[in-house]
């Protein structure tokens, strides 16, 4: 190093300015093989779903009745379904909906769950109230709740935002507000323990306001259970969406989604096993890749590991 370009020691400081900590995070993330592979797979799935339809000649809802129940071929790499619709095209457009629903609903649930969990764990005064509310939400039977939500809000939302966006908002909210409770309980439990740790006591004793204390000291330390919840949540959201479609609460029937494709394929499991397997594999791949990304992020964000 010194041979090629001898530079005096004082200059090094000028050449390598203090790096943004996110670069360190990225460096650590890069060397995590699982995380890197996960990101590649995840990006590939996104490209498949969002760029694929631009290239692929078939429409997801186009029926070619003469070509029904075909196996794999160059024209239809994944075959066709019982009405002769191209399964590849259906996987693509189904993926768009499922990924969007999965990720947005997950984000919403994590936001609510972490927020309520942290507040309940940190402030004892509102703990009781928030946790009783969590109990209430846990106890509400899901199906009637969704039916009521759909009855009250479907029409106003569709007329305000159009059928598709309105439905999307309704579904994402429905899934979000019915699945934040476990995260809230888990986070609260961790916060209860964390706030008695020495470094929190220390921070508090030097007069750190609760807001900064929570954001800088508490939240980063509950990230790993949140991360686990988040990856599990994506899978749950994608599957819940299919249950909603099944009940007629989800997207209109001419919108394929991965969950619905699995559901529709089950009756044909014996003749055409691929029809239910393919969307199943895609859901699993998505969840697996998000899981590895989460693992990598968690390691990269942990300064104790990053240092090593």
């Amino acid at each position: 190093m010194t041979d090629a370009a001898p530079t005096p020691a004082p200059d090094t400081a000028r050449i390598r300015p203090p790096r943004n900590q996110w670069w360190d995070v990225w460096d650590q993330f890069k060397i995590h093989r699982g995380a890197l592979l996960g990101s590649i797979v995840f990006l590939a799935i996104i490209a498949f779903c969002f760029i694929g339809p631009l290239i692929w000649p078939y429409d997801a809802t186009y029926i070619d009745i003469r070509a029904r129940n075909q196996g794999m071929s160059w024209a239809h790499p994944f075959g066709t379904d019982q009405l002769g619709r191209d399964i590849m095209a259906r996987m693509m457009s189904g993926g768009q909906v499922s990924l969007a629903v999965g990720i947005v609903a997950m984000g919403l649930a994590m936001l609510i769950g972490t927020g309520i969990g942290v507040l309940a764990g940190y402030f004892r005064r509102i703990d009781g109230l928030l946790m009783r509310m969590t109990d209430l939400f846990l106890a509400l039977p899901l199906l009637p709740l969704l039916l009521v939500m759909s009855m009250l809000f479907r029409q106003p939302l569709s007329s305000a935002f159009g059928v598709e966006t309105g439905m999307f908002l309704l579904i994402v909210t429905a899934i979000g507000i019915t699945s934040w409770m476990p995260t809230a309980r888990v986070v609260r439990g961790d916060v209860l323990a964390l706030k008695e740790r020495e470094y929190v006591l220390a921070a508090r004793s030097i007069g750190t306001p609760p807001r900064r204390l929570i954001l800088r000291h508490v939240v980063p330390n509950v990230l790993s259970p949140v991360m686990v919840s988040a990856t599990l949540m994506i899978a749950t959201a994608i599957i819940t969406e299919s249950a909603l479609s099944f009940l007629g609460l989800g997207f209109p029937p001419d919108f394929p989604t991965w969950g619905r494709l699995v559901n529709d394929g089950i009756d044909y499991l014996q003749q055409y096993p691929g029809r239910a397997m393919l969307p199943g594999v895609f859901i699993s791949l998505t969840v697996l890749s998000v899981n590895y990304i989460g693992d990598g992020l968690r390691d990269a964000l942990d300064p104790r590991i990053r240092g090593r």
């Binding site: 990856t231 599990l232 899978a235 994608i238 599957i239 299919s242 969950g259 699995v262 559901n263 089950i266 499991l269 239910a276 199943g280 859901i283 699993s284 998505t286 969840v287 697996l288 899981n291 590895y292």
Partner: peptide, 19 residues
């Protein structure tokens, strides 16, 4: 373990059951 558990969790029971 990660692989099996993530696959196990992400496949809905309405799929694994009939399978």
């Amino acid at each position: 373990g990660t692989f099996v558990s993530m696959v196990g969790f992400s496949l809905p029971t309405f799929f694994t059951g009939p399978l």
